[in-house]
């Protein structure tokens, strides 16, 4: 395996971690107005991700940094090409992050309601946009011979990519609900279970439609072949199995399976991309690949050593922090947010 492939894998891993972790954060934010019927309940919901949401978002920042370092042309083409979409995403992430910190620091109902709305919108928009972005990456976008995106904003909102957005939106919301069944208690636990049950079928339908339309919109099917391999098959099985367990109130298994669906689906999308990183809809020769978009071998080597040393350390203290906050939240828990 060459370094270019290694870095493609590493970036895939960062996106997998990001979608898995921030996936439930977004889900929790989207469910906030539907689940929390009074202020204390809403605070319990927010505090369920309180200690971790910020670090979960760092997976995205690291993925962005890694794209910049390992594949500067990918970073440059995608970030400038998807300009307005990213502006929307940034606005969402800004209001959401500030809202977590600010909302409970003043008791005025309007103040809190405003920030709760920011958490909701700030979670909904990226949950949707990430699916749109991934859909466009595999579908292909207008990229010219000089690696410049020439499609404008509306080009990104094609039916296939929008289905992708719907798929991530429903899946992340479902994942968020299953996360809450592990973190909450009492009335809220029952409610989050009920929501998880209601959300399962819509995610199955959205993902099914996204996969099927991929047959026409992308070259995924021809690339992966009749036997697509373990990841896509088990992504489907995990999603269906999650439905089995949620109806038997097995929260732990359901969360593992909704997470596994996210992990395996992300792997599938990256498999469909490889060795390209952005597909040109004009001419396949103009696609950005792990070779024509990459940094020099020297830089990739340096970065590989750094990743090798520090990724295990990061994983270590991340797991420790989840261990510290493993307990469920009750209505009488002292709430920081």
């Amino acid at each position: 395996m060459d370094l270019n492939t290694l870095w493609f894998l590493l970036i895939a891993v960062l996106f997998i971690g990001f979608f898995f972790l921030e996936g439930f954060d977004y889900g929790v934010g989207i469910l906030l107005p539907f689940l929390g019927k009074d202020d204390n309940q809403r605070r319990q919901i927010i505090n369920s991700i309180g200690p971790v949401w910020d670090a979960n978002e760092v997976w995205l920042l690291t993925a962005g940094g890694a794209m910049f370092a390992a594949f500067p042309n990918w970073y440059a083409t995608m970030f400038s090409g998807f300009y307005l979409a990213l502006v929307l995403m940034l606005l969402a992430l800004i209001i959401r992050g500030v809202a977590f910190e600010f909302r409970s620091k003043d008791k005025h109902p309007t103040w809190r309601a405003t920030w709760d709305w920011c958490i909701f919108v700030g979670s909904l928009v990226p949950a949707l946009l990430w699916g749109v972005a991934m859909g466009n990456l595999v579908r292909g976008v207008p990229i010219d011979a000089d690696m410049h995106y020439v499609g404008g904003f509306w080009n990104l909102l094609n039916p296939y990519a929008l289905l992708g957005g719907l798929a991530t939106l429903t899946l992340f919301t479902f994942h968020g609900a299953t996360f809450l069944t592990l973190k909450l208690s009492g009335d809220l636990l029952a409610k989050s279970r009920a929501f998880a049950k209601r959300l399962w079928l819509p995610s199955v339908v959205a993902i099914f439609l996204f996969v099927i339309s991929g047959y026409w919109a992308t070259d995924m099917f021809t690339r992966l072949g009749v036997n697509p391999g373990v990841a896509p098959v088990f992504a489907g099985i995990a999603l269906l199995a999650a439905g089995y367990f949620i109806y038997r109130d097995r929260s732990g298994w359901t969360f593992i399976l909704s997470g596994l669906t996210i992990v395996l689906s992300t792997i599938t999308l990256f498999m469909g991309l490889y060795p390209r990183v952005m597909v040109s809809s004009f001419n396949d020769a103009w696609s950005l690949t792990i070779y024509n978009a990459s940094s020099s071998p020297y830089t990739l080597t340096v970065m590989s050593w750094i990743a090798l040393i520090f990724v295990p350390i990061v994983l270590g203290y991340t797991i420790w922090s989840y261990w510290v906050f493993r307990k469920r939240i009750h209505s009488h828990t002292e709430l920081e947010y």
């Binding site: 760092v58 940094g65 890694a66």
Partner: peptide, 8 residues
């Protein structure tokens, strides 16, 4: 890009 990725 390298220092930015390392920073993250």
């Amino acid at each position: 890009g390298a220092p930015l990725a390392i920073e993250a």
